[in-house]
């Protein structure tokens, strides 16, 4: 687990491939690390404590399996009223900019 500590760039595929089956990390840690969301200072020695306190510290909303994640709809509304976001997503639609990436 230690050699992946130094990583900087989030969302690197090779990192996920390496962490996916590293059973010393919980899935939550894997995802967090891969997205580069963690605050590095409290890693290391506190990892063991985390392991034992995990169930207590869990977010209650996170306790059950979900198919649909929880969304913050106010934030989403703001996001999708934004012209830039709309433009960037249009390449995913058949009617969008045909010059966009992907192609049919």
């Amino acid at each position: 687990a230690m050699e992946i500590h130094g990583q900087k760039r989030p969302y690197r595929t090779t990192d996920l491939a390496r962490m996916m089956y590293n059973l010393t990390m919980t899935p939550a840690e894997v995802v967090k690390k891969w997205r580069g969301e963690e605050d590095d200072d409290e890693e290391g020695d506190e990892a063991d404590d985390d392991f034992f306190n995990k169930s207590k510290a869990q977010d209650p909303a996170n306790l059950e399996d979900r198919h649909i994640p929880i969304f913050d709809y106010a934030a989403l509304e703001a996001k999708w009223e934004d012209e830039e976001a709309i433009e960037s997503l249009k390449s995913r639609f058949a009617t969008g900019h045909m010059a966009g990436k992907g192609g049919d």
């Binding site: 969302y11 595929t13 090779t14 996920l16 491939a17 962490m19 996916m20 089956y21 059973l23 899935p27 939550a28 894997v30 995802v31 891969w34 997205r35 399996d65």
Partner: peptide, 27 residues
Amino acid sequence: KDVIGDEDMVQLGRDLREFGGAGWGLR
């Protein structure tokens, strides 16, 4: 990336391997 980079997906990959499947290849 947000679909695979999800706790449930990571756990699913691990569980599948636990049950004797091969690990997922990612690229």
